[in-house]
Design a binder for these strands. Structure first.
Ligand SMILES: [Mn+2]
Ligand SMILES: [Mn+2]
Ligand SMILES: [Mn+2]
Ligand SMILES: [Mn+2]
Lengths: 218, 218
DNA sequence: TTTATTTTTTAGACTAATCTAAATTTATTT
DNA sequence: AAATAAATTTAGATTAGTCTAAAAAATAAA
């Protein structure tokens, strides 16, 4: 079996591979996991020995089929637990990520499947992220950020790209939760600050905030 | 915070301290945790540094208040998760121990309390073990084993002392589950093998099996 | 196309948890 | 009380994961 640490690396590599299509860079992994590039190199070697990644020095890493399967199953777990915590234990969406980071590693096929069934096979987690199905298929959103909308355009919020407590908490205060309709009513050319209409109220948010909100255009 | 390993040691020491009232011996801990006495000595020193146990060389260990509190909270967690797995996810009582061994270490006050509430504040786990309340109070059974009953005496099964899959599975086959009434109809003097009446059927079980069943005498 | 900068890897060291083998202390027998 | 056995501790190694500092390779700039 794989250690928690190995699993966290696989998950990080998987997530980073969704953006750039090239091999994932050592520094990017180090950044995401708050560790040092030298530690990443060490771990990559180990994962390569286990055939979970393919790797040539200085060229970055890619997950093998096996590595990708593991990464996706951990993400499946993570998101199912997040649904459980919010739906069944009444946690708020900004409280569940850290707990799910631990629960995701209790990785027994049977537990995952039972949990999925108990939750009635949810498709999305509390942050709008798609839950991989039991065969590992993931239904990604088409990635339109709120910041991609033009003036006067409307959208409905379907997800967030950033899971930090401070961000989610901030969104909630602005009533920018999943399912909310928004309309762009002004964009500052200088720094892309947006004024939007939320439940009838005008709200001003930074580009940093708007680019992490995923919307479905209306 | 404490590592999973440290928590497992604390739990082991707690459990062993329930029998003998003296300091818990190094070898007993090593046995229970399937590790070597020398490893135990090392860990004990670390726990002593953290003031979680009191310890003098060659004299065994005792938990401090702090150490005991941690041990009990882990056990509380363990048993709540077992209830969850059986009641909500439809696992059988012989399938949950290993999973709970992992879940118990995800030790957040809030998670435990929410889980307790979700489960409607259960008093006992699927094996009849008492669940410590949120202040750490534990309502232990008076420890009458089935093997303590005399011929012709009756009892109802309220718990098991041994949690192995093979034992629990065996009990289930014999219909010796929690709540079942039994009556002793014969005891072999030589080796204490018992013949008992279970749901109208006569069943023969070894002393090894009968001494691990906790009963309430009727 | 050299020079400078950035990225990545190596070398060597550290901590947590474990082990084997040897030494020491305690307990049990004679 | 001495000898033997059992329990416990120490000494020294090992593995996983991490780090800092230095070397090497790849990129970017001049
Ligand atoms: Mn999350
Ligand atoms: Mn999520
Ligand atoms: Mn258990
Ligand atoms: Mn139990």
């Amino acid at each position: 079996m794989n250690s928690f640490t190995e699993e966290n690396y696989l998950k990080a590599i998987y997530k980073l591979s969704l953006n750039g299509s090239q091999g994932v860079s050592t520094n990017a992994i180090a950044d995401l996991l708050n560790t040092k590039p030298s530690s990443v190199t060490d771990m990559i070697k180990k994962l390569a020995d286990k055939k979970l990644v393919s790797y040539q020095k200085y060229q970055g890493v890619d997950l093998t089929k096996k590595g990708k399967d593991i990464a996706i199953s951990i993400i499946r777990n993570h998101r199912l637990w997040e649904v459980f915590l919010v739906e069944k234990l009444n946690f708020k969406w900004d409280e569940v990520h850290e707990l799910a980071e631990e629960l995701e590693h209790i990785n027994t096929h049977k537990l995952t499947e039972r949990l999925d069934e108990f939750l009635d096979f949810p498709k999305y987690d509390p942050h709008g992220d798609p839950i991989p199905d039991k065969d590992g298929k993931v239904a990604y959103h088409k990635d339109i950020a709120l910041s991609d909308l033009k003036n006067e355009e409307k959208g409905v919020i379907v997800g967030v790209k950033e899971h930090s407590k401070s961000y989610l908490n901030y969104l909630e205060q602005l009533q920018l939760v999943l399912g909310t309709e928004v309309k762009v009513i002004d964009i500052v050319a200088f720094d892309s600050t947006m004024k939007i209409l939320v439940n009838g109220k005008a709200v001003v948010i930074s580009h940093q905030a708007s680019k992490n909100l995923i919307v479905k255009s209306l």
